[in-house]
Design a protein around this nucleic acid. Structure first.
Lengths: 129, 129
DNA sequence: CGGGATCCGCTGAGATACTG
DNA sequence: CAGTATCTCAGCGGATCCCG
């Protein structure tokens, strides 16, 4: 549980990389950044293929790092909405550069449902925080 | 062997991320970018802890993606020198931004032998290509 | 609905030994 | 020196069950 990023990964970049390199992490961030805030179930459906365990795990991780915000509504049934924080904006910006680089290198392939993030979606995504 | 980045990772960013997220990849790139071109053995000593298998594997991967350049000198004993390509420059630039972001978020920690890349080292690193 | 707990299989990473 | 080949083990991630 405390396995953060010791051994060879003690520099800041690696912390971030270890975060992002998680199996579904990018997809979650990307989905939230393009489709806006989303409930757990919706996210689970959107990312499609991820197990609830993984989704929860990644979400907790991202929440802990201040990248996503978890809004818990104690209704019945309970509603939990996840949104990106402002921090995430900076991150997504860099990710976008990475995306640009990748597209120049590999050409843009299809299959990625969120290749070009709509600015308004990102705004929507950060509104809730 | 052909396990590139299919399933959920068909978009360019993910290709790059899958590349970088490899266990030692960042360290290798970082080391080459800060310490310049290096022989296999030196790299093996610098990265320290990596197995020859992993090192070879990552190096091959990076070479295949055009990020590192492999210079083979068929002397005896053979000398193989690895250096970053020009492509890598773009990548390192973004990585540097990521590093900046990470430092702002987490503060700069020690333990990363290559936190601040010397420009001359990067130049040196790309000279060979 | 949103998740925690548990089990379990599979692959990926390390260690070791060997080769040109 | 610069790798390759093989074995092995564990830790990650999926599936399933259950709770608030």
């Amino acid at each position: 549980m405390a396995r953060l990023t010791n051994d060879r990964n003690s520099c800041p970049v690696s912390i971030l990389m270890n975060l992002l390199s998680g199996p579904w992490t990018m997809y979650i961030i990307w989905t939230l950044s393009t489709s806006g805030p989303m409930r757990f179930g919706a996210l689970h459906r959107q990312v499609e293929g991820i197990s609830t365990k993984m989704l929860t795990e990644r979400l907790r991780m991202l929440e802990q790092e201040g990248i996503v915000h978890r809004h818990y509504e104690p209704t019945v049934p309970p509603q939990v909405t996840y949104s990106l924080t402002e921090r995430a904006g900076e991150l997504v910006a860099i990710l976008d550069q990475l995306n640009g680089l990748a597209q120049r290198w590999y050409g843009d392939l299809p299959g990625c449902g969120a290749s070009q993030p709509q600015p308004d979606a990102l705004e929507k995504a950060t509104v809730l925080l």
